[in-house]
Computed example of a mutant assay.
Amino acid sequence: MENIISFRHVSLIKNQNKLLSDINWQVNPGEKWAILGLNGSGKTSLLNVVNGYHYPTSGEVSVLGKQFGKTNLPELRKQIGFVSSSLDKFAHVLNRELAEAVILSGKFASFGVYEDVSEADWEEVENLMERLRLGYLQGKPFRLLSQGEQRRVLIARALIQQPSILILDEPCTGLDVYSREEVLDFVENISDDCHIIYVTHHIEELVNQISHVLLLKDGKVFASGKKEDMIQEALLSDAFRVSCHVRWEAGRPWLSLESSPFVLNPSRIN
């Protein structure tokens, strides 16, 4: 397969708003990408196109060698795992289930298990949980898990289908430091066979697994390439519109501001 994902001059217009403009982006076999950008930069819109939820207004898109307009998008989505804080809207269903049932539901692309389940299905879940170091959660209600454990279970749910692409849309949002590191360690150990698209605002979440970075700004590609080339102070300062300082520790980049980007008017502080 030549490209895992290919965008050629892709634009997206919704309700007369240009959400994406002339996007050119390729994900090659073996690459794992992070997508960075401010709110409104086009990250969610780009993910919606990859998933086939939004069809591009112009340009060409292919995912896993399937060209949009010539492929069955619902069938294509079965090869894409998706984890996002937007899944919280299904909490009322998830909270009724045990951890292993939540994972199994991913096999049927449902929330809750409504299909006939074979012993082989449960064995597959058990083996996956052991491989992902989640075996200790068997028999525990999802609602009683920590936030970090819940996110890891949802990632396992996405992995049960053995997707070719795993999209992690801000998976550490709302987590404390310990829970965040649990999730990042989990991501670090996902099989190399799975192509990760990791969306975040925080460069310290770019673990060693992440090989490339796509920087978006105002719905356009601001820069893209190998992680070490993209995580540069000048590029990030321009993309994030603040003066940034970057340091590397234990193979991960960390960002701090060189000075406050805002000048407060003392007369407005009472």
Score class of each variant (00 low, 15 high):
T173K: 06
D169A: 05
H195Y: 00
L134Q: 09
Q161G: 07
Y114F: 15
Q161V: 09
N189K: 14
A109K: 15
L64M: 09
L144S: 15
I203N: 03
V113S: 11
E149T: 05
R151V: 15
S146N: 04
V102K: 06
G148V: 02
M129V: 08
L128I: 11
G65N: 12
V187E: 06
S179E: 04
H202E: 11
F108M: 11
E204A: 07
S164Y: 05
A99Y: 10
A101S: 14
D192R: 05
S191C: 07
L145Y: 07
A99E: 09
P163D: 00
L175T: 01
L175Q: 01
S146G: 07
I203C: 02
S110Q: 15
G174Q: 00
L76R: 06
G81M: 01
D116W: 14
T200N: 09
P171E: 06
E60K: 14
G106L: 02
E75Y: 11
E205G: 03
Y178W: 01
G174E: 00
L154P: 03
E181T: 01
E204R: 12
Q162M: 07
V63Y: 09
H202F: 12
L128N: 06
D185Q: 15
H92W: 14
N127W: 07
R151K: 14
N189I: 06
S146K: 03
E100K: 08
A156R: 09
K78H: 09
Q147R: 13
L132R: 07
D121R: 09
V183F: 02
D88Q: 13
K140M: 13
I103S: 08
F90M: 11
S164D: 10
G65S: 11
I155Q: 02
C172M: 03
